[in-house]
Design a protein around this nucleic acid. Structure first.
Length: 473
RNA sequence: GUCCCCUUCGUCUAGCCCGGCCCAGGACACCGCCCUUUCACGGCGGCGACACCGGUUCAAAUCCGGUAGGGGACGCCA
C-alpha cells in the first residue's frame, strides 16, 4: 500500500457519510463497501456518519433504513453512527472563528437576488458563481445574512485522487460558498470538512459527483489549518441506458434486493466487481475481497448495473449455501405466499432439491410451493402427450411399486423407476414425465427421485393416486 | 454555457503506469452441441471490442496531440 507505509504510518480512518433522505441504494452501498474494504484491508477504522444538516429533508426512517441496509450487507462500522446534527455547536464555533479571522464574511444578498444573477450568468454563458457583492463590504446592516467562505483567489487547487489521478481546478472557478445559512445552520461542504478533520479521516472515499466539491473543501481545510486527507472518487453506477441509475431502471434499494431474494454475499460480490477488479477473478468471499482489495484497482469510468450478472452470482451463492441457512432465509418468502411448511416435508430437504435450480429466493419459494400443496390441477397440455390408458397404467404400477418400496434416497427411487421401465418396456420419459406431473402438477420440477425423497413415499403415492383418478374421470 | 471527468466485446472487466508475450484474455448474456426423466446444473464450442484522426517508434490498446461522444458539477441539497 503505497499510501500507508513507513514507521510513521498514520492511522487509516475512513467513513461512509450518507444523508438520511432515503433508503440505502446500491450506489451508496458500493461506496460504503469500498470504504469498509479499505479499512479492513489496512487494519484501519471504518466510521459511519449521518449527514443530517438538512433538517428539512432528513428523517429518522431513512436513518433506520440505511442502518438496516448496512447491517444486512455485513458492513459493520467501528465508530458511530455519528450525527452531524449533534455537532451544530462545534460548526458554529468554527464559523465564528473564521468570521473573526477574516476567512469568512457575512453576505446579505437574498436568495432571490442570487437566483436571478445565476440564471442570467448561465444565459450569458458565464460561470454562475457568486459575484462577490458582499465580499468587501464594511457595513453590517441589521438584516438576515448567510456566512460565506472567502475563497482564496489566484492559482489553482489540485489534488491527487487515488482513483482518478491528479485533478486541478483554477481558483477562479471556485466561488465563495455559503457555510452557514440564514437560519444559522451550517451547510454540507463546511460540515464535512470540520467532521473529517475532527474525526481524523485519512481517506475520503465518496461518489464521483463530489469531485467538484473537493477543491473548495481543500481550501477550507487550509483556511481552518487542518491537514488535507487523501481523496478517492468512485465512478457512478449507470442504468442500462447509461443514465444515472434510478428507480426507473428497477430496484435501487439494497433492502429491496433482500426482499427479492438475493443473498447479501451475492450483492456484495456483484458490487465489488462493479468498478473494481483483481485480474480475472469473479467470485470473492468476504475474506478474499478484504485481502485483495486495493483502491488503486478501482476503474476510472462509470459502470452499468447488470441484473443478469447479479442473478448469476446469486445462483452461485445459492448453490453453495448451507441448506440450513438457506431454509431460514427462504421461509419468509414462502410464508408471504400464505403457505405453511408445518404440515409438509422438512424445508431443508426441499431446499436441497431446488438449490441448483433457482436464481433467487423468490424463485425458489415459488418452485417450493407444490411440496406443501398437492397439485389442485395438472398441466393438461403436458398430460395430453400421453394417452389415457398409458397414464392409467403408469400411475397404477408406480403407485403400487412405490408403496412397496424400501428405498429412502433419491438414488434409490431413481433406480426403482429404471426397474419399472425395463420390466414394462417403457422409456424413462414415458414414466418420469407423468409421474412428475402427478407429483408437482407441472413439468418443471426437480428430479423424480429428489421429489419423492423430500415428499416421502406416503404422500407421493397419495398424489399419484389422485392423478390416476383425475385421468380416469 | 462554463469547469471537471470518462471512452477495450451488448454488459462487467484484464492488459495501459514500465510500448513488442495482444491479429487483445476472463466473466455475464446470447447461439450451438453434449449430458439428461422435465426444468435447471455442468461440460465443450461459437458470436463479439481497443470511439475516431493524426503524431512518435523498427513496433502502440499501451506514449503524445486533436476531434467526437458520454457523464458529472455549477443550490441558503448532500
Amino acid at each position: 500500500m503505497n499510501h500507508a507505509q513507513g514507521a510513521f504510518m498514520s492511522a487509516i480512518r475512513v467513513r461512509f457519510a450518507p444523508s438520511p433522505t432515503g433508503y440505502l441504494h446500491v450506489g451508496g452501498a458500493r461506496t460504503a463497501l469500498f470504504n469498509w474494504l479499505l479499512a479492513r484491508n489496512l487494519g484501519g477504522t471504518f466510521i459511519l456518519r449521518i449527514e443530517d444538516t438538512d433538517v428539512e429533508r432528513s428523517t429518522k426512517e431513512s436513518v433506520n433504513a440505511i442502518l438496516e441496509g448496512m447491517e444486512w450487507l455485513g458492513l459493520n462500522w467501528d465508530e458511530g453512527p455519528f450525527y452531524q446534527s449533534d455537532s451544530f455547536a462545534l460548526y458554529k464555533e468554527h464559523v465564528q472563528k473564521m468570521l473573526d479571522n477574516g476567512t469568512a464574511y457575512r453576505c446579505f444578498c437574498s436568495a432571490e437576488e442570487l437566483g436571478g444573477k445565476r440564471d442570467l450568468a448561465m444565459q450569458e454563458g458565464r460561470k454562475p458563481k457568486y459575484d462577490g457583492t458582499c465580499r468587501e463590504r464594511s457595513d453590517q446592516p441589521d438584516a438576515p445574512y448567510v456566512v460565506r467562505f472567502r475563497a482564496p483567489q489566484g492559482g489553482e487547487v489540485a489534488f491527487d485522487d487515488l482513483i482518478k489521478g491528479r485533478i486541478a481546478f483554477p481558483a477562479e472557478e471556485l466561488d465563495d460558498l455559503i457555510i452557514q445559512r440564514t437560519d444559522g445552520t451550517p451547510t454540507y461542504n463546511f460540515c464535512v470538512v470540520i467532521d473529517d478533520a475532527n474525526m481524523r479521516i485519512s481517506h475520503v472515499i465518496r461518489g464521483d459527483d463530489h469531485v467538484n466539491n473537493t477543491p473548495r473543501q481543500i481550501q477550507l481545510y487550509q483556511a481552518l489549518g487542518f491537514p488535507v486527507p487523501q481523496f478517492a472518487h468512485v465512478p457512478m453506477i449507470l442504468g442500462s441506458d447509461k443514465a444515472r441509475l434510478s428507480k426507473r431502471h428497477g430496484a435501487t434499494s439494497v433492502i429491496s434486493y433482500r426482499d427479492m431474494g438475493y443473498l447479501p454475499e451475492a450483492l456484495i460480490n456483484y458490487l465489488v466487481r462493479l468498478g473494481w477488479s483483481h485480474g480475472d477473478d469473479e467470485i470473492f468471499s468476504r475474506d478474499e475481497m478484504v485481502r485483495m482489495f486495493d483502491i488503486g484497482n478501482v476503474g476510472r469510468s462509470a459502470s452499468v448495473f447488470n441484473p443478469d450478472k447479479l442473478n448469476w452470482l446469486n445462483a452461485h451463492y445459492i448453490k453453495n449455501c448451507d441448506a440450513e441457512r438457506l431454509a431460514d432465509l427462504l421461509l419468509p418468502h414462502i410464508s408471504s405466499r400464505g403457505v405453511s411448511t408445518l404440515n409438509g416435508p422438512d424445508l431443508m430437504a426441499v431446499v436441497r432439491t431446488l438449490q441448483e435450480r433457482a436464481q433467487t429466493l423468490e424463485e425458489m419459494a415459488e418452485r417450493a410451493l407444490f411440496f406443501y400443496h398437492a397439485p389442485q390441477s395438472y398441466d393438461e397440455a403436458a398430460l395430453a402427450k400421453f394417452d389415457k390408458a398409458h397414464l392409467a397404467a403408469v400411475y397404477g404400477v408406480v403407485a403400487e411399486r412405490l408403496a412397496a418400496s424400501e428405498a429412502d434416497s433419491s438414488a434409490g427411487f431413481d433406480a426403482l423407476f429404471k426397474e419399472i421401465c425395463t420390466e414394462k418396456g417403457w422409456k424413462m420419459a414415458q414414466v418420469g414425465q407423468p409421474t412428475r406431473i402427478a407429483l408437482s402438477g407441472g413439468t418443471q420440477a426437480p428430479g423424480i427421485g429428489e421429489i419423492i425423497e423430500a415428499l416421502g413415499i406416503e404422500e407421493s403415492v397419495r398424489r399419484i393416486n389422485a392423478a390416476r383418478e383425475f385421468v380416469a374421470a
